[in-house]
Amino acid sequence: MKHVHALLLPLAAVGLLMFPVMLQAASLDPVDNSGVQVQRQEQNGITYLSGGIGEDEAKAIQQTTGYNLHMTFSVGVENKYIPDVDVVIQKAQGQPVLTLSQAGPLVYVQLPPGKYTVVATRNGEARHDTTDVGNDTARNLVFHWNGDE
């Protein structure tokens, strides 16, 4: 019996040490999308996803492929995701190609290659960014507002 106790203590210690590793591995697993309502949408021939409220929905969007512009909207010192942003994506000549209301906190868009200006507005406060979108890798734009929710 003394030998059994001597063996159980090291096994228990190894099990406790492995627990955090097992938790991290579980969080990297793909999300079961069956309960997540992220729908592919289209406007003017442009395909996009908008959502990301809740961890499962955010992970589901982040695991999608085929979108060459990824936008994230956040507010405050905690960088809290926000879902109430108006977005206009314009071609270089200023012609709008996609206009969204109350979008986010994540918006993924499939655009034809080219240069675009993105205007993201929240509570009347606009943020602008310009990007070249291609077919190779996705461009990531982060729009952040200071202050409270």
Rank of each mutant, 00 (worst) to 15 (best):
I53D: 13
A103Y: 06
Y108Q: 11
V85F: 04
S101T: 15
G94F: 09
V119L: 11
V97Q: 03
Y67I: 01
I89P: 01
Q63V: 00
P83W: 08
D56R: 10
S74D: 14
R122K: 13
Q62S: 13
A58Y: 09
D86M: 01
N68Q: 08
Q95N: 14
N123T: 07
I89M: 07
L106P: 07
D56W: 02
P113T: 14
T121K: 08
T72V: 09
L100T: 02
G52E: 04
L111Q: 06
T121H: 00
Y67V: 01
V85R: 00
V97D: 03
D84Q: 12
L111W: 12
Q110V: 00
T99I: 13
A120G: 02
R122H: 12
T64Q: 15
L98C: 05
Q63W: 00
Y116R: 09
L69Y: 08
P113C: 13
L69W: 09
A92L: 14
N79C: 01
E57W: 01
N79L: 08
L106W: 08
D84Y: 11
K91G: 07
I89S: 02
G52I: 02
Y108M: 07
E125M: 05
G114P: 01
K115V: 15
V75I: 12
V77G: 14
M71V: 01
K80D: 10
G94M: 11
N123F: 09
G54L: 06
G94V: 07
Y108G: 03
L111M: 12
K91W: 10
T99W: 02
T121S: 09
T72F: 08
G54N: 07
S101Y: 10
T117K: 14
V109C: 07
D84E: 10
G54S: 07
A103L: 11
P113Y: 14
L98M: 04
V87Q: 08
V88P: 00
V97E: 07
K59C: 04
V107Q: 04
Q93W: 07
I82Y: 05
M71Q: 04
D56F: 04
G104H: 09
N68A: 07
V119K: 15
M71I: 02
I89V: 15
E78R: 13
Q93T: 13
E55T: 12
Q102F: 13
T72H: 10
G66K: 05
T117Y: 07
N68V: 05
Q93P: 02
D56S: 12
Q93S: 15
N123L: 11
Q110K: 15
K115W: 08
T117D: 12
N79V: 03
E57N: 10
A92F: 14
S74L: 05
G94P: 10
V107D: 03
L111C: 09
D84L: 07
I82S: 08
Q95I: 12
P112H: 09
T65C: 00
K80W: 03
E78P: 00
Q90M: 13
G66S: 06
P96H: 05
R122L: 10
H70Q: 12
I61T: 00
Q102L: 13
D84M: 09
V119M: 14
A120I: 02
A103D: 12
Q90C: 05
Q110G: 04
T72A: 13
K91Q: 15
N68Y: 06
P96M: 06
